[in-house]
Each structure stands twice: as C-alpha cells, then as structure tokens.
C-alpha cells in the first residue's frame, strides 16, 4: 500500500519534471525568437541590398545622383535629409521636453501633474500618419503663409547662415519635417525625463532646498547631474525615433532628390524614399538600393538605440535595479 503511494508520488515527480523541462524549452524558444528576429532583420536586409553595395560600393553613400531611369543610385540626398531633419527635431525637442519634464515634476501643482502627464503621453500614442496629415493640410499652409515669408525676409539675409533660411515659402520642406518630427518625439523624451527625475531621492532635493537653493538651482545642480546618463539615454531614444519616422516625414518633405542648402526647400529622407518609391521600383537594382537604404537606417538606429539603452542602464544600476 505504502509502496504503491511512494511509486505514484515518484511517477508524479518525474512527470512534473518533464513538464517543467518542456515549459522551459517552450519559453526559451520564444526568447530565442526575439534574438532571431533582430538578427534576421539585419541579415535579410544586408542580403537584399547586397547587389547595390557590390555595384556602387562607397559611392552609394557619397553620391547624390539618384536616377531610376539611368539605374544610378547614390543615396547622399536621403541620408543628408534624414540627418538634418533629425537634428532640427532634436534642437527643438530636447529643451522643450526638459521644460515639460521640469513642469511635471517640480513646477505644476500636484493635482495638475497626472492629467497633463497623461495628455502628453497620449500625444505619443497618436499614429504618425495623423501627424503627417495634420502637417500637410494644416501646418504647411500656416507656415507657408505666415512664418516662412518672414524667415526668408529676415533670417535669410543673415551672413553665413542666411542661405539656410532663404528660399520660396513653399511650406513643404526640410524645416517643416523637422518641426513635425519635433512635435512627435517630445512626448517620448519628456516621459523618459519625467520618470528619471522622479527617481531622484527626495532627501537630496530637500537638502539643497534647505541650503537656500531656488527651484531652478535644485533642478540644474542636483536633479540633472544625478540623472545625467538617463537623460542622455532619453534623448537618444527620441533621436532613434526621429531618424526612423516614416509617415509624418513623407507627407511634408516633398520627395525631391536634389540637394539644396536651404532648409525651406523640399528634400528627402531614407524612410520617406523607401515609402514613396518601393511600390514602383521596377528593377532588381532599384529595389535592392531601397533595401540597402533600409539597412543603413537600421544600422544607424541600432547604434543610437544601443547607446540610449546603455545610458539608461547606468542610472538603473545605481538605483540597484
């Protein structure tokens, strides 16, 4: 009787162990799948773009001659456009996000913090195509009518930087794309900044207040140094978004393959080029060039996001998480 019970218990233990192993194998496979997805994405695009890389070599990156009829593909214009629009977006979005994070953690009365914070986060949830439509139908006419003529007449006359701001007020162009991108990445950067500002120990801040610091001094000299690495991480996270954003930029950038110094002129970006031209790419080389562009974008965003992640990790480590 007792033997039978022990035998049954043993059988159950063996069965449980087997199920445990199976379950573990199952979830481990899923974990491996995530790794595989990233590796597969990189390799498949390298493979898809190989024809272009071997045909044009380094010229693919440095040449600005993009001619589908002659089968000449140099991607400098979209690469330049991607970098410039992202730079404009960051120049505007970083200070604005810092201001919003400051407002949400130190300035606003407590009852106001949650609703305003939620509203800003909702901005992040709006699909990018909505930003694009708003940009094209509302923002572009507004800029073309009221803002760009003024910029052209005033900033356009400045020495050195004047050529950046001179040009016909089309509304569509590099600067507009940068502005729309800025609006899009502000919620991402500001919510990271707010979250890391909240991790600063109250003791530190109160000590500074007790020594007679103003609120601004507490933020600038205590909160910001304490969270520096994570703030930089948040900025790079926003940069990663700005570099890879497709729809919003495609609407307002103008899809022009000419290089122009003026920020008011239409330009192009990597993502916008792919979105605009992929469906009509009729030759293998054309398609391969677009995939090669995607590969470049992938590599750049990978590096930027990896930096972001490592920076954010540093603060988390100090927090003991």
């Amino acid at each position: 009787m007792q033997d039978a019970l022990i035998a049954a218990a043993e059988r159950r233990a063996i069965r449980d162990a087997r199920h445990d192993l199976r379950f573990r194998g199952l979830v481990a496979t899923a974990g491996g799948f995530v790794l595989l997805a990233l590796g597969g994405a990189a390799l498949s695009m390298l493979w898809g773009g190989w024809e272009t890389f071997s045909t044009f070599g380094l010229d693919f990156v440095t040449s600005s001659n993009w001619d589908a009829i002659d089968q000449q593909f140099g991607a400098w214009v979209p690469i330049y456009g991607t970098l410039v629009t992202a730079a404009i977006a960051m120049i505007i979005a970083v200070p604005a996000s810092f201001g919003i994070a400051l407002f949400l953690t130190e300035v606003a009365p407590t009852w106001l913090r949650t609703p305003v914070g939620t509203a800003i986060e909702l901005l992040a949830g709006i699909p990018s195509i909505i930003y694009g439509m708003w940009g094209l139908f509302v923002f572009v006419p507004m800029l073309a009518e009221h803002v760009y003529p003024w910029i052209d007449a005033n900033l356009g006359q400045w020495p050195l930087v004047g050529s950046l701001f001179a040009g016909p007020p089309l509304g569509i162009g590099t600067l507009t794309a940068g502005l729309v991108l800025a609006i899009m990445v502000v919620p991402f950067i500001s919510s990271v900044m707010r979250d890391v500002f909240l991790t600063v120990p109250t003791r530190l801040k109160e000590s500074a207040y007790a020594l007679g610091s103003t609120r601004w001094e507490v933020v600038w000299d205590v909160v910001l140094p304490y969270t520096r690495s994570a703030v930089i991480g948040g900025v790079f996270l926003g940069l990663g978004r700005a570099l890879g954003e497709t729809m919003a930029v495609t609407f307002v950038l103008g899809n022009a393959h000419e290089l122009s110094t003026s920020l008011l002129m239409p330009g192009n970006s990597i993502a916008a080029t792919i979105a605009n031209e992929f469906a009509e790419a009729d030759t293998d080389l054309y398609r391969s060039s677009l995939i090669a562009l995607g590969f470049l974008l992938f590599v750049v965003t990978f590096v930027v996001l990896a930096i972001a992640k490592l920076m954010l990790r540093q603060l988390a480590k100090r927090e003991g998480r």
């Binding site: 790794l35 990233l38 695009m45 898809g48 990663g240 890879g244 965003t301 990978f302």
Partner: peptide
Amino acid sequence: WVGYTIRFVNDILLSAPSIVLGLFVYTL
C-alpha cells in the same frame, strides 16, 4: 547574460523604425 541580451535586443526592436520591419518581411 542571456536575459540581459534578450531584454537589450527587445528594447531595440521596440523602438526600431517600423518601415525596417516592413522591409524585413518583404525579403523574408
């Protein structure tokens, strides 16, 4: 380290440009 790697890769996939995933599925 396996967990750290998967988290790291997953966070990058989380913010990766969606158009890149479209290209991936296109070639795949």
